[in-house]
Amino acid sequence: MYQRFVSLSIQFRKNYQHAKLDDITLLALLCWQVELGMTNQRRFYRFLLSLGFKGLPERSRFNRVSVNALETLQWVRFGLVHTVIPNPRYTIVDSFPMPLCHPIRNHRAKRLRSIANIGFNSTKIQWYYGLKGSFEVTNQGIAVAYTITRASIHDVNMVATLVDQYPCRQILADAGYLSRKLKAQLAKEGINFWAPKRRNMHRTGIDDHLLKRDWRQVGSIFSRWVSLFNPEKNRAHSAEGFQTRLEQCLLVDTINQIN
């Protein structure tokens, strides 16, 4: 996958042959870290040393190299999404909160302050400090596009970004994405954007039960991701480190779903 999908400018970058840890071994280790459920990079490094793993760089250098693998992880995952995964019948758009601390510390938390803020979690009916992840997944349950924003950003504002990453002719969403302007804008691009209407809205006579059933499966997909990627236990202190950890989990999940 590395040789097939990763750009040659990355594979043969300057002094690549002098690296203590080659890219393919690093990718394998990062995927293994996800399978082991280790969110702490320092703990994972000590674990590798305890196994007698040789050829590792110094610990702080290993952490930097892992964070710098973000672009390589993205190349491999994008390659899988666009070449291996068949064209889906529809995609599902939804978001879920990524709290970085317990609610009691909302106004004292400092982690990732440059990109995080306080938002409302409508599922748990509580305010939280952290980020919001907006995702587009296929009917097979594979993530094909995502964006990470502040917790206070409205879900509707992220749809255009997701569609730019992975356009699909049929997109399902929940009632939080109801917007006539958005629906009309996507219709001009040949995209049918469906969201269930509220009880007080005019009914068209179309039976939406099947579409609602398909949309609800996104809940099980998100719970699967949370088991792999627990944002509350993510020790990253930079936006790049946070996203790298997320990319690790998405790549492992994509490979597992394809297999």
Score class of each variant (00 low, 15 high):
Arg64Lys: 15
Val65Ile: 15
Tyr16Cys: 12
Arg224Tyr: 06
Phe120Ala: 01
Trp225Pro: 01
Lys14Val: 09
Arg198Asn: 12
Ala187Cys: 07
Val218Ala: 04
Asn200Val: 06
Phe193Met: 05
Ala175Cys: 07
Gln185Ile: 04
Asn15Ser: 12
Gly130Cys: 00
Val67Pro: 10
Phe12Asp: 07
Leu100Pro: 05
Arg169Leu: 06
Lys197Asp: 08
Phe96Asp: 02
Asp94Gly: 06
Val159Asn: 03
Val67Trp: 04
Leu29Glu: 02
Trp215Leu: 15
Arg46Asp: 11
Thr72Ser: 11
Arg180His: 14
Ser9Tyr: 10
Asp214Tyr: 15
Ser134His: 15
Asn139His: 13
Pro103Tyr: 05
Gln257Ala: 14
His107Leu: 13
Gln185Tyr: 09
Leu30Trp: 09
Lys14Cys: 06
Tyr128Val: 00
Ala195Cys: 15
Leu228Asn: 03
Tyr90Pro: 08
Lys54Pro: 02
Lys183Ser: 15
Asn121Ser: 01
Asn40Met: 09
Met1Gly: 10
Tyr2Arg: 01
Tyr129Asn: 00
Lys183Arg: 14
Asn106His: 02
Val76Leu: 04
Gln126Asp: 07
Asn87Pro: 12
Gly141Val: 02
Leu162Lys: 01
Asn117Lys: 07
Phe120Ser: 09
Val159Met: 05
Ile153Ser: 04
Ala195Ser: 15
Leu80Trp: 06
Ile10His: 12
Ile85His: 07
Ile258Leu: 10
Leu70Thr: 12
Phe229Ser: 09
Ile142Ser: 06
Lys110Thr: 11
Leu70His: 15
Trp32Met: 12
Ala160Asn: 12
Ile115Asn: 00
Pro99Leu: 04
Gly55Leu: 04
Glu189Arg: 15
Arg150Pro: 13
Phe193His: 05
Thr72Lys: 14
Thr147Lys: 11
Ile171Tyr: 04
Thr161Leu: 10
Asn63Met: 13
Leu49Val: 10
Ile115Met: 00
Ile148His: 09
Pro57Phe: 08
Glu136Thr: 06
Leu26Ile: 03
Gln3Lys: 09
Gly130Thr: 05
Leu21Asp: 08
Met201Trp: 13
Lys212Leu: 14
Gln185Trp: 06
Asn192Arg: 12
Arg64Val: 13
